[in-house]
Amino acid sequence: MTEIIRSLADLTGRYDAVFCDLWGCLHNGKAAFPAAVAALQGFRATGGRVVLMTNAPRPKSSIVKQLDGLGVPRDAWDIVVTSGDAAQMGMLSGAVGRRVHHIGAPKDEPFFTDFAEDLAAYAATQPPITRVPLREAEGIVCTGLRDDLTETPDDYRAALLLGKTLELPMLCANPDIVVDMGDKRLYCAGALAQEYEQMGGTTLYFGKPHPPIYDLARRRLAEAGAPADPQILCIGDGISTDIQGGIGEGLDTLFITGGLEAERFGADVENPDQSRLDAWLDSKELSPTFAMGRLR
């Protein structure tokens, strides 16, 4: 049975590092959560390392800039790893060809130009990636909707059907289906990838819960001087991304019930009801190691 804990400090000394989700755990897209910031600062103060792991389709530098703008202090984390970073590696390796059609927003432009140091060195050894119209492409790179404030996956049905007819593989840079920005729920690249698969298209994923992002996180953690075979706790509010991914990697997990699924576990978001939580987790056939209302 999943153990409900009061705070991250309850686990002091048990883990060398945390892989912590961002949206829904550390911020809501508009503001940082002070209690979550304090929890991560406290974890680092005891010698732990904080890896911020996000399914955002943009490279690390864009996320660091966003965190700064949201008021997340630099002493709350050590490393940032994004689905965009892992997907960039896939794109650069030619996973969907070198002539690609991009589906995504203007804010995602850095995906094609801004590479972390380890990826930039690799990019310099590879043939260039060229963006082309859909009918000229070898594959699709999907970073999200062009306007996630107004659009839904239905707006992309014709383009997805054409891609499927052309037998183009899709690289999905963000497996998330939805996120909450304040009180508004927005669709992500994962929603388009899900539609594409339902049409019979081929989709490649690089973010949580899939292995590439965890491989990249472990490599960067090792490069930062973490101990060999560190004890890692995965923290997140996405049951099918953060939690399923952590369990799939053989890691302990902490499910934040007050994020995407906040309305399921009783009126007090900070204190989820154990019986409701257990019943819902049974229906998902997943068992996080721990659970907590909001990260604190």
Score class of each variant (00 low, 15 high):
residue 296 R to L: 07
residue 141 V to S: 09
residue 87 A to N: 07
residue 42 G to I: 11
residue 41 Q to C: 02
residue 6 R to V: 08
residue 199 M to K: 06
residue 257 T to S: 12
residue 187 Y to A: 11
residue 97 G to E: 06
residue 168 L to A: 13
residue 185 R to N: 04
residue 213 I to R: 01
residue 257 T to A: 15
residue 81 V to A: 08
residue 155 D to T: 00
residue 190 G to A: 14
residue 53 M to I: 01
residue 35 A to F: 10
residue 15 Y to P: 07
residue 64 V to L: 12
residue 192 L to Q: 11
residue 222 A to R: 00
residue 78 D to E: 00
residue 63 I to A: 04
residue 66 Q to D: 07
residue 292 M to T: 10
residue 62 S to N: 04
residue 18 V to G: 08
residue 291 A to P: 03
residue 108 D to P: 08
residue 125 T to N: 04
residue 131 R to M: 13
residue 70 L to Q: 05
residue 250 G to E: 10
residue 187 Y to M: 11
residue 175 P to H: 08
residue 73 P to S: 01
residue 5 I to V: 14
residue 206 F to D: 07
residue 115 F to G: 07
residue 188 C to A: 13
residue 219 R to V: 00
residue 4 I to V: 14
residue 78 D to P: 00
residue 241 T to A: 08
residue 144 G to L: 14
residue 224 A to Y: 06
residue 25 C to P: 09
residue 234 C to Q: 15
residue 168 L to V: 14
residue 72 V to F: 02
residue 216 L to H: 04
residue 286 L to T: 08
residue 16 D to V: 06
residue 156 Y to I: 03
residue 111 F to L: 08
residue 33 F to D: 11
residue 67 L to S: 01
residue 52 L to P: 10
residue 288 P to N: 13
residue 4 I to C: 10
residue 19 F to V: 02
residue 182 G to N: 00
residue 210 H to L: 02
residue 212 P to V: 01
residue 173 A to V: 05
residue 43 F to Q: 11
residue 116 A to F: 09
residue 222 A to G: 00
residue 93 S to W: 04
residue 149 L to M: 09
residue 174 N to M: 10
residue 69 G to K: 10
residue 53 M to V: 00
residue 226 A to C: 09
residue 261 E to P: 09
residue 266 G to P: 05
residue 3 E to T: 15
residue 64 V to F: 04
residue 51 V to I: 04
residue 122 Y to G: 00
residue 66 Q to T: 01
residue 184 K to G: 00
residue 52 L to V: 03
